[in-house]
Amino acid sequence: MEPIKSFSATAIALPVENVDTDQIIPARYLKVTDKAGLGDGLFADWRRDDNGNLKPDFVLNRPEAAGAQILVAGNNFGCGSSREHAPWALLGYGFKAVISTYFADIFRNNALKNGLLPITVDTETYYQLVSMIEEDPATQITVDLAQQTVTLPEGQQLHFPIDGFAKYCLLNGVDQLGFLHQQADLIAQYEATHAQRVKTIA
């Protein structure tokens, strides 16, 4: 995974609550065995008509949306299934961060493991961002993970929370599995002192 650096980009506003993972990437796209190409399926049923053509009125398809790297979406983004295909699709499309008032647990975990930043803001800030983007889609937003800040064009700065360990991994491009491997002795000790409850291999 590439380390996450500070970046500035335009954003897309999707002011809908409870955007579930079936919308982010419909199940028919999950019959793959790798991660490639999932960006095409991002929001497929909202983005494309029955013939697979892009619907011009959907926000992602408007000309001003091109190049946006930040998605601002309503409360409880990423609810529903555990499919990691959801952050893969968002990343595949070109998003680097999602801003919402809160994220479903599994989605947040999955996003952090793939370098997609879930940024939580309060309701007031969320509405402010949505109207700002809707008024001027060219609004540049700067995200700085090290400082945990989002900076708006007029210099207004917001602080966002992030788990310290996840932040360390993202800033340094470290895979979290490495940390688990470092616990090998503790894991072996745990296995030696705790009863095995079930064995699937008869």
Partner: peptide, 10 residues
């Protein structure tokens, strides 16, 4: 509880 594919790997 449910986990993502990275965690399946873990």
């Amino acid at each position: 509880f449910g986990i993502g594919t990275s965690e399946v790997g873990h």
